[in-house]
Design a protein around this nucleic acid. Structure first.
Lengths: 197, 197
DNA sequence: GTCTATAGGGTGATAGAC
DNA sequence: GTCTATCACCCTATAGAC
């Protein structure tokens, strides 16, 4: 009567999305074959096309889910924190930490965007702009209250987002730093970058 | 008697390497066909194989040249500068600036490494470690003299190199910041990251 | 050193049985 | 909803003429 495998893993769509995320992260979208995706999910190549119209549509679903997840991370981070310094630290901490812990998803989300159809790409770029806006808003607010000494909110936003995104490129699970340690390092770095008083 | 095209452009090897760099940067190694490379260089697909053993060997030559160029940029940057702060600022300024101005080369150098043969990859990774060592050495020296307040030389090195590398991902020639402005922003950011006095 | 032609194999996607 | 079999196309790399 017990269920050995979680429901998520028996749902063929979720199995295909998970398999594709791994394959895209390891070899890139173009170098990944539909046979590889289906094989990792324990299916024949044809089964993929029952659930998705094309290989590109698989990437689209992954990119959409990943970006929504990332946006949520950034939006939820400052909840309950009072100062702009603590709020920004939490946002950068959690965003960097997510790119380490979810580096497989992160790599697909950040580096395979150009493989999307123009319409799908536009939709995903909107989510990216919301994340950027969240961070820019926090930094601008901190500058307005005098909590941050930097005069350049846009420059600081660019630097901090770029820093977090690049974690997905270099992070390795067997590396020197854990996701939590990366979050700490990056959260503290953020306060230096905006010259928090 | 005048020469309309520079010698570099008439050398088929240089033409192929330039064409391949553009193609790899735009579409990635795996999505680029040898037909595309040869076509951009004004040749037939077969001509490529007179000068290179394989598509991978073309990438290898680009990666080697790009990494040597980048290493030179970082090594030359601090020449003639006395304080560790000015030396580090120059290194980060020039390295970031290079990734913007040479973003086509930079994108290939930073994001197509995994497509190299294991032996070629190892050779290129050695050059990367030299760049890392150059920056770590400068930061450690600045900490030793008390010029930099950060206690974490490795963390600061990681942050600054990551920042510069990621410029190749997001930089667009028609964007808000010029390569020189990015260099300035990143050079100043570097001094904040290491807590320069 | 360049070309045209092609070998040999892999790719995304579909047809039709169960 | 999954499978086997396959289509039509594209790929890297090579052969051989000039």
């Amino acid at each position: 009567m017990t269920r050995e495998t979680p429901v998520l893993r028996t749902d063929p769509v979720q199995r295909l999305l998970g398999a594709a995320t791994e394959a895209f992260a390891e070899r890139g979208f173009h170098a990944t074959t539909t046979r590889d995706i289906a094989g990792r999910a324990g299916m024949s190549p044809a089964a993929l096309y029952v659930h998705f119209r094309s290989k590109e549509e698989v990437l689209y679903h992954i990119a959409l889910r990943g970006h929504r997840e990332a946006r949520q991370i950034v939006a939820d981070a400052p909840a309950g924190l009072a100062t702009h310094a603590e709020r920004l630290r939490a946002m950068v901490h959690d965003f960097a930490c997510w790119h380490a812990g979810e580096h497989t998803m992160g790599r697909v989300v950040q580096y395979e965007l150009d493989a999307l159809d123009p319409a799908h790409r536009t939709e995903v770029v909107l989510l990216r702009e919301q994340i950027e806006s969240d961070v820019l808003g926090e930094i601008s607010a901190g500058i307005a209250t005098g909590e941050f000494g930097t005069p350049d909110a846009k420059g600081a936003t660019l630097v901090l987002l770029s820093l977090c995104v690049d974690v997905a490129r270099w992070y390795r699970p067997d590396g020197r730093l854990s996701p939590a340690e990366i979050g700490d390092l990056y959260g503290n770095t953020a306060l230096r970058v905006v010259a928090a008083r």
